[in-house]
Design a binder for these strands. Structure first.
Lengths: 237, 237
DNA sequence: CCAAAAAGAGAGCACTGCTCTTGCATTGGT
DNA sequence: ACCAATGCAAGAGCAGTGCTCTCTTTTTGG
C-alpha cells in the first residue's frame, strides 16, 4: 500500500525514471546546454507536452539530474574511502580526492552540471544542498579523525581572518581548530580548481601526466590542511 | 591608406565594434547561454541575417568576446602588478591574485566565459591561446624574479612526478627548477578554484568574509610556490 | 457506479541559429 | 567616367526550442 497506491502510481515512478535516464544519456552525450525536452520526449515515444506532467520545466529536470549527480559523486567518494578505511589520514585524503577526480573524468557533463559554471537564470533550489555537502563532509571527517588521533599541523592565521575563521569553524566543524577549518575550505575549493582545469582543457599542452600531477597536488593539499606524512615513509618534508 | 581603405572599411570596423559592444552588454546581463544573435541585431536596428556578414556564426562572436575577455583580464592583472613593482615577490603575487579575483567579481559573465565550463560542441580556436596565457606568464615572471634575486623555497617531488616536472619546466620556464614550476602550475589551477567557488556560489553560507579569506589563501599559494614571507614582517611561518 | 483526478495528444505561440535569394550601394580597374 | 565586381542589408523560410492551452481518454477512490 505504502509503496504504490496502484498501477498508476507505479507507472508514474517508472516514467519519471525513464525520463531521467534518457535525459542523463543526452546530457552525457551533448552537455546540459543541448539537453532538449522535446528530444527526450521524442526518444521516449511520447509527445513533448506529456513530459510536462512529470517535470514542470526544463530547469526542474536539470535539478533532478543535479541531485542525482551529487549523490553519485558522493557515493563514489564514500565507497573509495571505505576501501582504505584502515590507512593513515593522508592516504585516505588522497584516495578521496582521486576518486572525485576519476568520477569527474568519467562523468564530465554531470560534473560540469554541478561544479561548472551555473546556467544563468537558474538558481539551484535548497533541495540540492544536502546532496552537495556529502564530499565536503567526508573530507571533514577525515581531518577530524586525524585531529582526534594524533592531531594536525596548524598554519597560523592573520589577525584579520581570525573572526571569520572562528565563524566558519563554528558553522562547519566546531570541534576543529579554526586554522584547520580555514585550510580545509581553501583546499576544498582548490581541489575543484585542479579538477576543473584538467577537465575543461586548461592543462592542454601544459600538464601531460595528469594522474601523477594530481596525486602530488592532492598530497600537497593534505599537507596544507595539516595531515602530516606518516613517519615511516620517506624523508621528512 | 593603411588605416582604412575607405568609408566602407571604416564602417565595417565600427559596425563590428558595435556588435561586440552590444553582445558584451547582453552577455553581462544574461550570460553566454542567452546571448542571441537576433537580439543583438534587433537592438542595433539591423536584421539578423545582416549580422552574419560580420560574424559567420554565434560561436565566432563568442570567440571574439573570449579573446577580449582574456585581454581585459590580462591587462587588469598587469596594471595591478605594475603598481606594486617595487614590493617583495610575495606581495606582488598576492596583488596579482587579488586583481584577478576582483576582475572576476566585476565581470562574472566574462570570467565564466573564459574560465567556466566550456560550451559543449565549442572548442576554443588556437587564436585564443596567446591571450589566455597572459596571467600565467605574469605569475611566472614574479616567481622568476624572486628566484633570480634571493631564490625560492622548493618542495621535493615524488620520483614518479620528476620526469613530468622536468617536461613542464622545459616547456614553461626552463630557467626555473622543476619543483617550482610544478607548484606554480598547481597554484595557478587552485587560484581559479578559489575564485570559481566564490563566483559560482559554492561559498554561500560557508565563507562570509571572502576578501580576507582570499587574501590568506593567495598568501598560502605564494608560500606553496616558494615565495617566502619577507624577514621584516611578522613571525616566521 | 460515477464524478474527479491524472495522463496523453495535438495545435499553437514566441523564440532561436542559420541559409538563401533579391535588390541596392560602394568600390576599384580600365 | 563608366561598369563589372564586390560588399552589404533585407526578407522569407527552415528546423528546432520551451512552454501553454484545449480536448480526449484512462484510471482512481468514495
Amino acid at each position: 500500500m505504502s509503496t504504490a497506491r496502484g498501477a498508476r502510481a507505479r507507472a508514474r515512478i517508472e516514467v519519471t525514471a525513464a525520463i531521467k535516464d534518457e535525459a542523463r544519456r543526452q546530457l552525457a552525450e551533448d552537455g546540459a546546454a543541448k539537453l532538449s525536452l522535446r528530444a527526450v520526449a521524442r526518444e521516449l515515444g511520447m509527445v513533448s507536452s506529456a513530459l510536462y506532467r512529470y517535470f514542470p520545466s526544463r530547469d526542474d529536470l536539470l535539478t533532478a539530474l543535479i541531485i542525482d549527480a551529487y549523490d553519485s559523486l558522493g557515493e563514489t567518494a564514500e565507497a573509495a574511502h571505505a576501501e582504505v578505511a584502515g590507512a593513515d589520514p593522508r592516504e585516505r585524503w588522497i584516495t578521496v580526492c582521486t576518486a572525485v577526480r576519476r568520477w569527474a573524468l568519467e562523468h564530465p557533463q554531470e560534473y560540469t552540471l554541478i561544479y561548472g559554471s551555473p546556467v544563468p537564470g537558474y538558481t539551484a533550489p535548497e533541495t540540492t544542498i544536502p546532496a552537495a555537502a556529502r564530499v565536503g563532509l567526508l573530507l571533514i571527517s577525515i581531518v577530524r579523525a586525524a585531529y582526534q588521533d594524533k592531531g594536525v599541523a596548524r598554519t597560523p592565521l592573520p589577525a584579520e581572518l581570525k573572526p571569520e575563521a572562528r565563524r566558519m569553524a563554528a558553522e562547519l566543524a566546531p570541534d576543529l581548530p579554526p586554522e584547520t577549518v580555514t585550510a580545509l575550505v581553501a583546499a576544498w575549493a582548490q581541489l575543484y580548481g585542479l579538477i576543473g582545469f584538467e577537465l575543461f582543457g586548461q592543462f592542454h599542452r601544459v600538464v601531460e601526466d595528469r594522474e601523477a600531477f594530481f596525486r602530488h597536488a592532492a598530497g600537497r593539499l593534505a599537507h596544507e590542511v595539516g595531515l602530516v606524512v606518516p613517519p615511516t615513509a620517506g624523508p621528512a618534508e
